[in-house]
Design a binder for these strands. Sequence first.
DNA 1: CACCAGGAATGTA
DNA 2: TACATTCATGGT
Length: 208
Amino acid sequence: MKRKLEDIYYRLLERFSYQSWWPADSKDEMVIGALLTQNTSWNNVEIAITNMKRENLCSLEKIFKADCEVLKKCIKPAGFFNQKASYLKNIAEFFVKNGSFNKLDMFDNATLRKKLLSVKGVGKETADSILLYAFNRAVFVVDAYTRRLVERHNLLKEISYDNIQHLFESNLKKDSSLFGEYHALIVKNAKVFCKTKPLCYNCPILGI
DNA sequence: CACCAGGAATGTA
DNA sequence: TACATTCATGGT
């Protein structure tokens, strides 16, 4: 299994090269993007983030103090703007009241993950994305594409978030850079080959 | 026009 | 625990 997961990784890497995720100018922006991209195309998230930068709202401190209506207007292109505005407020409050990244970095992976999951609007994938890309923790992010990949290759009998995450984490070197690239490559591959084929049929890289 | 996108919360059984 | 529904915009 270890060999199989490494093979998939190197095939993706050879085709697409390093992605250097997460695409953001700051850790704050990373967290903001993680929430906005929930079930939403990255293209729409970029529009929303551009709007937030124009309104000087692209930081957790600013969001914490921002007017909700202005925030909603900015993130409207990213969809679910009513929910996401309140979710952004929640995560912003969480970081502001917990001393931001420096203080939160004192906690181990499991503890920090629980704290993030306690924020309304932050689920497993969002929490793990933040752990990996903002805190540089060796946590594997499982998204819809990763799930498809595991399903198509029959890598697991029981498909669940926790099982998929354990599959990657226990068979690869626990390296945040590796995990970050792997997840980014899976998404990159999906964007290129799954545009008109949602289930990744005929993907020339992975043979699925 | 239908379908989907780098999900999560809530309700039901 | 396991599904179904809701949230909403923009691209294909």
